[in-house]
Structures are given as C-alpha cells and as structure tokens.
Design a protein around this nucleic acid. Sequence first.
DNA 1: TAGATTGTTAATCGATTAACAATC
DNA 2: TAGATTGTTAATCGATTAACAATC
Lengths: 214, 214
Amino acid sequence: MDEKSISRAVIKRLPRYFRYLGELKDDGVERISSNDLAAKMKTSASQIRQDLNQFGGFGQQGYGYNVKYLYEEIGNILGLNKKHNLILIGAGNLGQALANYVNFEKRGFIIKGIFDKDTAKHGRLIRDIPISPMEEMEQFVKKNDIDIAILTIPKTEAVEAAKILVRYGIKGIWNFAHVDLNVPDDIIVENVHLSESLMELSYKLNSTITGKGE
Amino acid sequence: MDEKSISRAVIKRLPRYFRYLGELKDDGVERISSNDLAAKMKTSASQIRQDLNQFGGFGQQGYGYNVKYLYEEIGNILGLNKKHNLILIGAGNLGQALANYVNFEKRGFIIKGIFDKDTAKHGRLIRDIPISPMEEMEQFVKKNDIDIAILTIPKTEAVEAAKILVRYGIKGIWNFAHVDLNVPDDIIVENVHLSESLMELSYKLNSTITGKGE
DNA sequence: TAGATTGTTAATCGATTAACAATC
DNA sequence: TAGATTGTTAATCGATTAACAATC
C-alpha cells in the first residue's frame, strides 16, 4: 500500500518545498499557486504540480494550495511527524558541531547518545548528552530504541562501524566519512561528503563563463 | 576554448571518481579498465567511459586507464591544481569544525581568515588562523586575494553577508546556511543543507521496502 | 457564471545503457 | 597477430516541460 516509486529527483526537491512553505506559513501566507511558488523558488509551476501529484492532489482548482496544509502534508511525506532516536559516533569537531545543533530536535531527530573511542572524552557532556565508550554502544542502541546513527569518524573506522551498527539493528546511517559504506539493501545511507561538495565548487569556479552557475 | 557544456550529473560524479582513483593509486594499482572500476564503484562501465570522454580520451584501447594519469587529469578538471584562498564567516560550532579540518588544505583550499561578529571571539586562533571582526573583512579579502567564502552563519545573516561578499569581489560561496542566496549568475554557490540531507534520510526510512535505498 | 488554477496527459528534452567499430 | 578495451554512435529509458480539459 505504499507509493508507486518516487524518483530520486523528486525526493531531493521535497525538503526545499518544505522549507519554502514553512517560510510562507511563518509569514502568514494562507494560499499560493504553483505559479507564484515557482517564481519564488526559481523553478517551474509544471514541475511543482507534477512533483506534488506523485503523492496526491493537495491543491484545488481555481484556488491553489493551502500553505499550512501543504506544509504539513510534505512534512508527513518526509516522515517528520515521527520521532527518531539517534546516536552520534565520533565526538570530534564535526561531531560536536552536529551534537550542538538543536534544530534537528525540532524536526523529531533526537540525539540520545554520543560515542567515541577516546577515553579522555568519556563522561563529558554535550548539551546533556553524555559521551560514552564504544563498548557500551550495543546495549545503548537496544535499550534506547535507536534507529539512526550519525557517523563522524575517520573513513578508516567508518566501514567497520557501519557493519557493527547494522548488526545492532540500526536502520539508517547519516554518513560524514569519506567512504562509501557497504551495508545491506534495506539499510538507508545518506552521505554528506563535504570534500566532494567543495570539489564541485572548485570545478565550477574553474570553468566559469562556460557553465551557467548553480 | 572551454569544454562544450558538461551536464550537472557528470560533474557531481567527478569527485567520486577522483576519490576511487586516489585510493587505487595509493594501493599501487597501475591501470584499471572501465569494467573493473565500474564493479568497484557500483556503477556501469558505459557511464564511466561516457563521463570521461566528455573531457577527452584518457584511456587506451586494449589497456584501460592509467590510474595515476587519470587521477591527475580529473584533479586538474576539478581545478585542484590551483590554489584557493578562503575566508570562513561564522566561528560557531560548525565553522570551527571546518576551520579545524586540515584536509581541505591538501587540496589547495587554504583558509586565510575567520570572521565573526562576536567580539569575545576576536583575537582567538583556530590552527594559527585568527578570528577577526566583520569590519575587517573587506580589507582582508582584497589584501589576501580571497576568492571563496565559507558561510557558517544563521540564515538571517547569510543573505546579506553574501551580497556584501560579492561586492568585495568573492567568486565562490560555500553556503551552509539554510537559505538560497541571491547572487549574480557569475558567482558560484555550492550549498550544503544539512537539515535537508537529514530529511531525505528520513523520507527513505519512512518509505522502506518501496524505495530501493541509496 | 466566468476566471483561475489544478491534475494529468502528451511532447520534448536529456541522461543512461547497449552495441560495436576502431585501435592499442 | 589475436585479445582486450576504449571511444563513440544508436537505442532506451526517465525526467522535465508544455498543453489543456476538468473543476473549484
């Protein structure tokens, strides 16, 4: 009974729709047409209607889309109506930055525990969240119903860590290590490869005039 | 005299080729066929050959690709043979994490200065790099030949900051704020929207079985 | 009712895959 | 030379855009 099979391109656009609709909502805008939204987002009305209709008819002919309703619906599609318990593995600079980022909680992503192999860090807190030794991870995951792990450890350790996490029952991995993890098909991996993002920027800088920006 | 016009999809794959070739090179592998590389990267040989040929013939019939040569060529295409001077704006948790990340330097991206509006932070150093008040930015950019700015400030400040940076002559912006910046067409913006990445993960978790994972 | 705007089908465009002749 | 493997053209597949009938 699930949706047909939404293309990757559409999925990648959903969070951006969500962001714009959130802003419109906060601005007190009640309704918006695909045309106006397209102008704001610098995309096409056709694409917006096409994208939204993958999930059902959220609009109304002659009226457009109700901002608050559409915002909520997209939130539901993105699964933001559900709570997720996360652990963060690797309390280095990036790990600490993410642990300090409170906005994730607003969306239902709650970091319950932080793990690091450095004994000097054990017991320390980041926003109430204690840093624990890796050995306690298994028990913690099971006890706290953890379904997502954030990996902010070096690539040399990440592959092995991912394997272990899968064994512990984790369902999704947000991977910041510069490797491709090798996990079963039913485990969701979302990669954030910062250095690759920077290289893309570099490429575009390197080939200006030719390329057309963004 | 620049390349025809490379598709976005191809560009996004280049850094990943570069990463795999770098690993092969470090492992002492001398040559590789598109077929073997495809197997390693879980893509198709056809796509690899097609992608590389956008930039010229780097291989040799009957032999394959010379790893070291191809690695260097892709590096050049990505502009990694050139040095870039960067500034980082916003010395919060994420900004500090990025400033501490030494690997960018290896690729020619050198953070020369850090700016923050918080006076308490001024004068402090992150890896030799001093944190300075925003007022000194203009002079610094011009004096140090800065061409890339990293934005790790709240979205409310990012739009204005980007506008100013463009005026100062910056060419590229690596944007970590959750907004779309509004800059002229010849300015390159590369966005890292962490919360959107997390929402994508959330969507996929929410629709497992249906989707076919990453 | 008339006007606006969606939902949806059809047309176009672009990207990926398959195939194979060229050539090392 | 024979075998391997590229570079490149053609075929297929998918995503975007355009158009318009349905309907609020």
